[in-house]
Design a protein around this nucleic acid. Structure first.
Lengths: 150, 150
DNA sequence: GTCAGTGCAAAGGTTTTGCAATTTA
DNA sequence: TAAATTGCAAAACCTTTGCACTGAC
């Protein structure tokens, strides 16, 4: 499972003219093993269990990289500290756009909205477990019957 | 409208052994007149139009007070800066937070989400006409039956 | 050999705090 | 007068960056 993420990371690194490093592998390994939101400091101390010389800057740089390649999500809650979360994403976590004319359903995922939903839930003291969001409208498909009206 | 908020603030101040101050009234007045999220710096510069000697520290302290008494909401988005929002929620459109334990429904409004929804619809060539969003989770109410499980 | 990655320390940006002076009740 | 509030500057945070060095390709 964590293996899979590491492979994705390696692929990203290889395909983007980057180089691998021992420190990054350690940090990523630690991160992918985390269940919950983690802070930079938490990652740093866990990483230092495996290599005591890893610097905070490297953790920041690694997490930035993981965010860029979609393997980590950054969250800003009220603490002022950034929390990082493994972005498994594939739990059926998509939302829907529905055309009122032809019934076509488009699935989409939007990290920003997911993030905001968490923020909203938190502000109301909720522990979020699920959500549904549906957007209704008229699609742009020329074959859609709705277009005949226009 | 803004008047109402100011009264609430004064009540809170009076009931909590605090004292009033010209600066705080100015900052609160400016804040309650804001439609959108505002930063400390925006509040500061608007407040300084009325009293050029108001300090940033006072703005921070005032906004902290307003948050504590429920008149302002702090938001931490990706910018790293804290945004403050008047917590009225009376703009008509709202979405729902639903407690899976006690069925409690909390209404909320979020301009950013509304905005993102339009952006997403546009990206997919949809003309948005309506939407629904529901967040499901467990509320923080101690009287909520779900808490017995824990 | 070249260029990305690292560690360190310094710099940046935002928010909080200590303190003397001021203002309110 | 006692206590809260203020402005200022310093301190405290979190995060990013410059630089010389190391390590991967």
């Amino acid at each position: 499972m964590s293996e899979n993420f590491i492979e994705q990371l390696r692929g990203y690194v290889a395909n983007n003219g980057l180089k691998s490093s021992r420190q990054r592998e350690i940090i990523a390994g630690v991160f992918f093993g985390c269940e919950e939101h983690v802070t930079i400091d938490q990652l740093l101390s866990k990483a230092r269990e495996k290599d005591s010389k890893i610097s905070q800057a490297t953790v920041y740089r690694t997490m930035k990289l993981l965010s860029e390649c979609g393997l980590a999500k950054m969250r800003h809650f009220q603490s002022g500290q950034t929390l990082y979360e493994v972005s498994d994403g594939e739990k059926g976590h998509h939302d829907h756009l529905i055309c009122l004319d032809c019934g076509k359903i488009v699935e989409f995922v939007n990290a920003k909205i997911e993030e905001l939903q968490h923020t909203i839930a938190e502000e109301h003291g909720f522990e979020l477990t699920d959500h549904r969001m549906e957007l209704y409208g008229h699609c742009a498909d020329t074959k859609c019957p709705g277009k005949e009206r226009a």
